[in-house]
């Protein structure tokens, strides 16, 4: 009884003091390979925010194929922020769930993409199949691992990079580019739902000769499983991937977390966060930080999503139901 009384009194006295420090919990719904990145970012941001405001922030992470994650948010998953693989997935949330305004990309610098990445090849050590460029992927006996573009953002970047190379090789002949991509997916025996699953297929299950991978995922595989097991091959042409971020307005307003959620995303552009981004093998936007880590990232020729008319058009043409991917994959 005495203990209860003391505890009650202590709580009563502590309450007015603690009223000045708030505690927040955010949910970051992200795409597949960013687990390690956001684990590091979240720790740094929580410390930074605590130092600046006195408030405590804990951030939960959810990862999966970017398309699947967007679908989960549309279906009601209460994400405070979404950090997905491509703008089309956040556009889909804005369009279908109406929880994000359509101008979401204008609210943060660089089209709300705090870092970029690209697509490279991860091959087995010594590159036994001599895979050097996109054309080598459809040679007889070559087995390619890539996720499913219907569920994975990374897979859509893979597809578009391959398509861009084929267009260039064939003087922008769409039919020939489609024929190439059709042949490419004939060489892909397993379509995982996300990029991390594809990495597991290639690295841990030992399937395939080449993994079409996010650059960061390829480097991470070297770090984790040993540079003596895999090599990274940089193709002659790839695509500039711009994974974007956004606050989910309806959720943060309901939960009262807008201030801290916006601070979280703005933090991604700080020097400290850009440094973490580079260390995790994503290409930082900040020129100074990019220069600092320039030797980590190979230089390559990049097309952009603008070359496909933007994400809305690319999504509709290639990945929507009945689009090019459906036609070529079903035909296989």
């Amino acid at each position: 009884m005495l203990k209860k009384l003391i505890a009650t009194l202590a709580l009563g006295l502590a309450a007015p003091l603690s009223a000045y420090a708030a505690s927040y919990q955010l949910l970051n719904v992200s795409y597949d390979p960013t687990r390690e990145l956001y684990k590091a970012i979240n720790t740094a941001f929580a410390a930074d925010y605590k130092a600046k405001t006195g408030d405590t922030v804990s951030i939960q992470q959810s990862h999966g194929g970017s398309g699947k994650q967007a679908r989960a948010v549309i279906d009601g998953l209460d994400a405070d922020v979404v950090t997905l693989a491509l703008a089309a997935d956040i556009d889909a949330i804005a369009k279908n769930a109406k929880t994000i305004p359509e101008n979401w990309q204008s609210r943060l610098p660089d089209n709300a993409s705090p870092y970029t990445s690209t697509i490279v090849f991860l091959v087995r050590k010594g590159n036994p199949k001599q895979i050097k460029d996109w054309g080598d992927l459809i040679k007889p006996g070559v087995s390619v691992v890539t996720p499913n573009p219907k569920t994975s953002g990374g897979a859509r970047w893979n597809y578009l990079a391959a398509y861009a190379w084929a267009l260039k090789q064939n003087n922008k002949d769409d039919a020939k580019a489609q024929a190439y991509v059709k042949e490419l997916y004939k060489h892909a025996p397993v379509l995982d739902t996300g990029a991390r699953g594809a990495t597991t297929t290639f690295v841990q299950r030992g399937i395939g000769d080449v993994l079409l991978a996010w650059e960061n995922e390829a480097f991470l595989s070297l770090d984790e499983f040993g540079a003596d097991k895999f090599d990274i091959v940089v193709p002659s042409l790839s695509i500039l991937a711009e994974p974007p971020v956004s606050v989910v307005d309806k959720v943060v307003d309901k939960k009262g977390t807008r201030k801290v959620a916006e601070a979280y995303l703005k933090y991604l552009y700080t020097d400290a966060a850009q440094d973490i981004i580079a260390k995790n093998y994503y290409r930082p936007r900040n020129p100074a930080i990019a220069a600092k880590y320039a030797d980590k990232f190979p230089k390559l020729n990049l097309v952009t999503i603008a070359d496909f008319g933007g994400w809305t058009k690319a999504q509709q043409t290639h990945f929507a139901d009945g689009g090019v991917f459906d036609k070529i994959y079903l035909a296989n």
Binding site: S143, P189, V190, T201, R205, G206, I207, G208
Partner: peptide, 8 residues
């Protein structure tokens, strides 16, 4: 490889 693919 075929077995691994089927397993996966």
């Amino acid at each position: 490889q075929r077995i691994k693919i089927l397993e996966r």
